[in-house]
Design a protein around this nucleic acid. Structure first.
Length: 600
DNA sequence: ATAGGGTTAG
């Protein structure tokens, strides 16, 4: 290598040549420190205005998630060309800021710089990550007007973007695919992947069979189709007869078994993998975490780090989400520690995942400290924090945060209102909650959805205003669902409204005929009212229908082990002793004046 | 072009 040759006094020319050699791979660098060093060297050598150097620097900053630095470099260039604009558009896309990407596109046009074959695919990528159907259409119009369809790369991107915009988009993609004069393997793969995403597995399989030639990506795509449809037998059959299997193929089946809850099979395949990158580790760790198998999840996380793999943003977000769902504080803290070891600041979505995890694990102070330390917050950050406060009964604090959100200029969205209404109902602020519900549409232009009605029904129900709640269910502009009736049933139990409960359960069993929870709730209500005939009647009904579906469960983490339990749970070997203990506790509670809502 | 990716009422 020339670089390692001893050079004592490099002339300006050779120094410049050395720098140029370094710059060849610059656009792929991910180490911010190194990129900053080279940036300084470029400035010193007066190379920044060189239009083959600046795009590489922008790309490198973008790969380090330093979009501000990338924009800064761009703004210093006196005469940006298409290539430079394309690089900035790509940087915005990578940073999940489609609106910035489009702003750059419009600026470029106003400066008289014409887009090229690369501009449109980048812009289309910006849309497909966010399903911006109208934007895809707009670009499509541009492309047809300027006639860029000759390059197969462009129509392929169109098919990919359209097919990621819901079922209507898939139709457009299908038509484009049909009229394409020339197709390569990417065209076929894009179309098949779109059909798989839209749930059209049959048609996807048909195209797969018709393809003139298939590569590993084609096989992986159709394999994922079976995995997404939950058809693990067919998926595994396909996996075994694939001509070539790569990391993606293996990861796909491992993920399928995780989703199906077959952790043994998932683990067996995972252990068999010869080549592993961060993705399969993420899949298996999240899989264990989701099932509450803390020990396995933590031990694999340690093994992953021992193997020298650092979790990237995707891994962190995915594992933290699984921790949040199952309440695995221990693993969540471990992930947080890994982040703190390697990064000074995280991307907004990573901090959001941390806030959500801490909030769901009831560590509200830690959630708050991450939230307060964030450089930039988006709607998700506010909503995760609001929801955490609401969920754990801190109604007052949730409302305070809601005001702060408004003061700082963040418009609450429909999710924020779910949290606010939930906060009011858990804190017993019935009138305030109703007022917030009314302001939604009036002041913020957000049309209440079934979830919001659900919160208000809970609000009224908990507040004892059962009749109003019931009337609201009947007068809402949309169909009621099992969650709504379940909410109402919970309220009936709380206020011993026996007659109404029977009526509610009638609706409920039509929607969830095999859910034990509904029956046990009804039986509790009759028991609380001392109506033992009705209790045995419900029991009889339960047996007649035959209950297959397990009811909802609660879980608690003790000594790094998650314990899960359901209503009437008798599965624990010491369950007699446990119920004895509960009896004693209830007796003690009664002595100090507690009246149990349902007890038998 | 294919695998993992924050917030949503009981």
């Amino acid at each position: 290598m020339q670089i390692s040759m001893p050079i004592r006094t490099p002339s300006l020319v050779s120094r410049r040549r050395l720098l140029e050699e370094k710059l060849i791979g610059l656009h792929k660098w991910t180490d911010l420190k190194q990129v900053k060093q080279v940036h300084a060297q470029i400035l010193k050598a007066n190379l920044l205005q060189d239009l083959s150097v600046a795009p590489k620097l922008i790309a490198a900053f973008s790969l380090c998630h330093e979009i501000a630095l990338a924009v800064n470099v761009f703004n210093q260039i006196q005469q940006p060309n298409v290539h430079l604009y394309n690089t900035l558009i790509r940087a915005h896309v990578r940073n999940s800021q489609p609106s910035q990407a489009f702003a750059t596109f419009f600026e470029m046009q106003s400066k008289g710089v014409y887009p090229d074959n690369f501009t449109y695919p980048f812009l289309l990528k910006a849309c497909s990550g966010h399903s911006l159907y109208p934007m895809v259409q707009m670009i499509h119009t541009h492309i047809e007007k300027f006639g860029f369809c000759s390059d197969i790369f462009v129509p392929n991107s169109l098919i990919d973007s359209y097919s990621k915009c819901g079922s209507f988009g898939v139709n457009v993609a299908r038509k484009l695919f049909m009229v394409m004069g020339q197709r390569d393997v990417v065209s076929w793969n894009s179309m098949i992947s779109g059909l798989v995403k839209a749930g059209e597995l049959g048609e996807a399989r048909h195209l797969f069979d018709e393809m003139p030639e298939r590569d590993t990506v084609s096989w992986n795509t159709i394999l994922d189709g079976y995995v997404k449809a939950g058809e693990m037998n067919k998926a595994f059959e396909l996996f075994e007869k694939m001509p070539d299997r790569n990391v993606v193929s293996w990861s796909t089946v491992v993920s399928g078994y995780c989703k199906a809850g077959d952790m043994d099979m998932a683990r067996m395949l995972f252990d068999k993998m010869a080549v592993k990158n961060i993705v399969p580790w993420t899949i298996i760790i999240s899989g264990y975490a989701e099932k509450g198998m803390t020990k396995e999840a933590i031990s694999l996380y340690d093994k992953m780090e021992e193997a020298g793999l650092r979790p990237d943003d995707g891994a962190v977000i995915s594992i933290l989400a699984a921790c949040a769902e199952s309440g695995l504080l221990g693993l969540g803290e471990k992930v947080h520690a890994s982040i703190k070891r390697t990064k000074f600041k995280c991307r907004t979505s990573v901090s959001n995942a941390l806030v959500d995890m801490y909030a769901k694990c009831a560590c509200l102070d830690k959630a708050y400290s991450v939230f307060d330390g964030m450089a930039r917050r988006d709607a998700v950050s506010w909503n995760a924090m609001l929801q955490g406060l609401a969920m754990h009964g801190h109604g007052e604090k949730a409302l305070q945060l809601f005001s702060r959100m408004n003061e700082e200029g963040f418009a609450p969205d429909k999710v924020s209102f779910i949290s606010i209404l939930c906060a009011c109902s858990h804190a017993g602020f019935v009138e305030e909650g109703l007022q917030y519900f009314y302001t939604m549409e009036r002041d913020y232009g957000i049309i209440p959805e079934v979830e919001h009605y659900g919160c208000v029904i809970d609000l009224l129900g908990r507040g004892g205003r059962l009749k109003e709640a019931f009337r609201l269910v009947q007068s809402m502009p949309m169909e009621s669902n099992a969650i709504i009736w379940g909410t109402l049933l919970g309220a009936c139990r709380m206020h011993n409204a026996v007659d109404l409960a029977g009526e509610v359960v009638d609706h409920l069993i039509k929607l969830e005929p095999s859910d034990v929870g509904n029956f046990s709730m009804l039986s509790n209500i009759y028991a609380a009212a001392g109506d033992w005939d009705s209790v045995s009647n419900v029991r009889l009904q339960m047996r007649r229908i035959g209950i297959q579906k397990p009811s909802g469960s609660s879980s608690i983490e003790v000594d790094e082990e998650v314990h899960e339990f359901t209503v009437f749970d008798k599965s624990h070997p010491k369950s007699d002793k446990i119920y004895e203990m509960i009896d004693r506790l209830v007796q003690d509670l009664k002595q100090v004046g507690y009246v149990p809502k349902a007890y038998q």
